[in-house]
Write a protein that binds this DNA or RNA. Sequence first.
RNA 1: GGGUCGUUAGCUCAGCUGGUAGAGCAGCGGACUUUUAAUCCGUUGGUCGGGAGUUCGAUCCUCCCACGGCCUACCA
Length: 501
Amino acid sequence: MSEQEDKPQQDINQIIEKRRAKLAALRLAGNAFPNDFRRNDLASDLHKKYDEQSNDILEANPIIVRVAGRMMLKRIMGKASFATIQDMSGHIQLYVTNDITGESTYATFKHYDLGDILGAQGTLFITRTGELSVRVTSLRLLTKSLRPLPEKFHGLTDREQKYRQRYLDLIANEDTRKVFVARSKIIQSIRDFFVTRGYLEVETPMMHPIPGGAAARPFATHHNALDMDLYLRIAPELYLKRLVVGGMEKVFEINRSFRNEGISIRHNPEFTMLEFYEAYQDHTYLMDLTETMLREIAVKILGTTKISYQGHEIDLAYPFLRLSINKAIQKFQPEYTDVQLNDRTFLINKLRSLNIIHKPEEGIGGLQLYLFSETTEHLLIDPIFIIDYPTDVSPLARRNDNNPEITDRFELYIAGREIANGFSELNDPEDQAVRFLEQAHAKEAGDTEATHYDADYIRALEHGLPPTAGEGIGIDRLVMLLTDSPSIRDVILFPQLRQEN
RNA sequence: GGGUCGUUAGCUCAGCUGGUAGAGCAGCGGACUUUUAAUCCGUUGGUCGGGAGUUCGAUCCUCCCACGGCCUACCA
């Protein structure tokens, strides 16, 4: 690769130009991108071990360390300088001097730029102001940075740039790093939670010939060799239940699903979902399990069951309320009476006054659900399970034994948002076939989110799905909740944005 | 998709009623051997998101476009 080739077409900023000249000089002097420096020490480990150590002891028994990282701050003071480097664990200060580090190394160091990746060896000491530092004996530039860092005090605040150039956001903003470390820990603790309980983690296809398992518009793609249309999955549900048919009685999957719908503060086209299924259990078991899991994760991540989300103080420690849609509306909107909420005409008029469009043949339960979504959902700050969802809007859920109009289903709301959706699975293949047909008719009638008839799934159910409970949890939203992030984009490393330019 | 607010130096931001742009950080030069957003002195850097219009004159007013934030709709 020649240097001419990788020059950008646009005007080169003079800072970049200057740095390119430095890189050119490095190339002439030898290997500009060496990979023979081995780090022995992480910043945070050194702080943990030696922050409390007295300087006398450190000076008496010199501890030789090798650290590496990106230079974030540089303070040149004549013949001695301080530099702060940042590695994956944190920061450590280097003390670079004319006499100890050597005149030529020191002179070279003075021309290093903020953002350069350095490797240093030296001994630990504690400065007059009490900061553990490395008295550098040897110092090398491992990677030249050609572009200037964001401003050192304010960091990077431009939201577009944070999302597009996440690497810069991660370099400059510790808060961002913390969020994504927390995300990783949350997912790990979910994994631990299920594996500990005897669940098997599986991966099912993300490319589906028939999209199913949710009401949503899919992304479409095409396989050339098979000459076959495929859809990015909108949910893993139907495959996971096939696995339960196959004898994997406790399974879970944590991975991406895709929905071709609007983008907002709560929606990214690809999002991470946990789904888990357990045979010989029902939805009430799932609610108990969910409470236990959320408490456990919160304690692991935050050290407490108390979470603070966008000004709301929420404690997961108490048993979560469980209310039907109807009861929840009455509790949070006392102006509505039980009689009104069961009066079809009242509901239709109310929805019309709220400008809510619904299917003309919608049943009482469906109308209540519309009213609930509009008036009550956002008020559900403390954790609450909403139960007894209408069968019409739950094509994969088991009918309630006493009332076939509702299903054994719940959704969990926290901070006004749906966090989880679970139910006792519909394992009657003939009922499922009828429900699929209803969906197929709705699709023909123009409902773009209605699901397809999945004949293989019916065939699987005909082999016998044991009575099973299954649940899905939106991981991104859970991470938002636990990291106090206002937007889903703050918890997804590279959220979907419009094309640049 | 609809509404609304925004886009000024590499970054963080000022910029009055329309008179062609400033600061801090970063950079460059200088002083400084325990600083930590180091400090002090000097200094480079701009197609004011793009295009069109109004005007003697536009960063500023109008329109169109691009991108982004927020609200809203569908959804998890």
